[in-house]
């Protein structure tokens, strides 16, 4: 679907992307994770033809490079910056971007209605975007990206700066897109979002992919053991375990002072995967 082959990009003396090779499959939600400055946005920019790689090739559907405008027709981009015209209404924004992708007439108007409903902004269609909340703008930003029903949608930090309610709405939109068979490339530095939404995840750091697999496999391979904290009537202890349920069942079966009165379980996450792989936290 989307292939990056040995891609590199350097800005002056900073290597933003270093020999990146990725293959993103049709219909999957692919997470591109990493701290700020890891190279995610540069990768996305190269994927949509905004930036030319210094080395390597990018192929979309085997049709060619995204620097070719015709190839870009199958892409939808929801950029990190809210790329909307504040002085236009939501409908006018969608009409404009729909036209850029070749939609017209009834097809265009139907598409506008469909995406407005999809992002639950139908009732605000005639309002100027300048008066929208951050969450509404984020949803409209996404609507503009998918109005032409692209095969691949790239979302660059789509939940940046939005309230929890809007974040959940965006999660639902991504899930719906996957159900429709759309390939989604999702960049974020929030590991919990990737865990919740992504089929596969590539973790980037300093321009390189340091791990690539499903979330479960990454956690199994690099997340370390779960931490089971047991509290008894006399003390509290922490158990490192690969199978917390069995360990807990065994302890509960005991008697006397060793029988747990309460417990907490800290499962390994992508955060711990990153910590184990790089020796530092994602938010460092």
């Amino acid at each position: 679907m989307l292939n990056f082959q040995n891609i590199s990009k350097t800005y002056v003396s900073i290597c933003a992307v270093d020999d990146l090779t990725l293959e993103i499959k049709k219909g999957e939600v692919f997470g591109l994770l990493g701290p700020n400055g890891a190279g995610k946005t540069t990768t996305i920019s190269m994927a949509v033809g905004l930036v030319d790689p210094d080395r390597g090739t990018i192929q979309i559907n085997g049709e060619g490079s995204p620097t070719d405008p015709a190839v870009r027709k199958g892409l939808g981009v929801a950029p990190q910056a809210l790329a909307l015209y504040d002085d236009l209404t939501a409908r006018e924004n969608l009409l404009l971007f729909g036209r850029l992708y070749g939609l017209a007439g009834a097809e265009l108007h139907n598409a506008v209605m469909r995406v407005l409903e999809f992002v639950t902004l139908s009732d605000r269609a005639g309002d100027r975007v300048g008066g929208f909340s951050g969450g509404m703008k984020r949803r409209l930003n996404l609507a503009c990206a998918i109005i032409h029903e692209p095969d691949i949608t790239l979302m660059d930090e789509p939940t940046a700066g939005v309230d929890p309610q809007s974040r959940n709405a965006i999660f639902q939109l991504v899930t719906d897109l996957r159900e429709r068979g759309c390939t989604v490339i999702y960049t974020t530095h929030y590991m919990e979002e990737a865990e919740r939404l992504c089929d596969r995840v590539a973790i980037m750091d300093q321009g390189k992919v340091i791990a690539l697999d499903t979330v479960d496999n990454l956690i199994k391979a690099h997340g370390g053991q779960a931490e089971l904290t047991i509290r008894t009537s006399q003390n509290q202890r922490v158990i490192q375990t690969d199978d917390p349920l069995s360990d807990l069942a065994r302890l509960m079966a005991g008697d006397g002072s060793d029988r747990p009165t309460s417990f907490t379980l800290d499962r390994p996450s992508l955060e711990s995967v990153f910590l184990n792989l790089t020796g530092r936290s994602l938010r460092d």
Binding site: L50, R72, P79, F97, L100, Y101, C144
Partner: peptide, 14 residues
Amino acid sequence: TNGTLMRLRVAPIS
């Protein structure tokens, strides 16, 4: 500066 130019540039237009 607002990013709309970027959105125009990723559209299938030159």
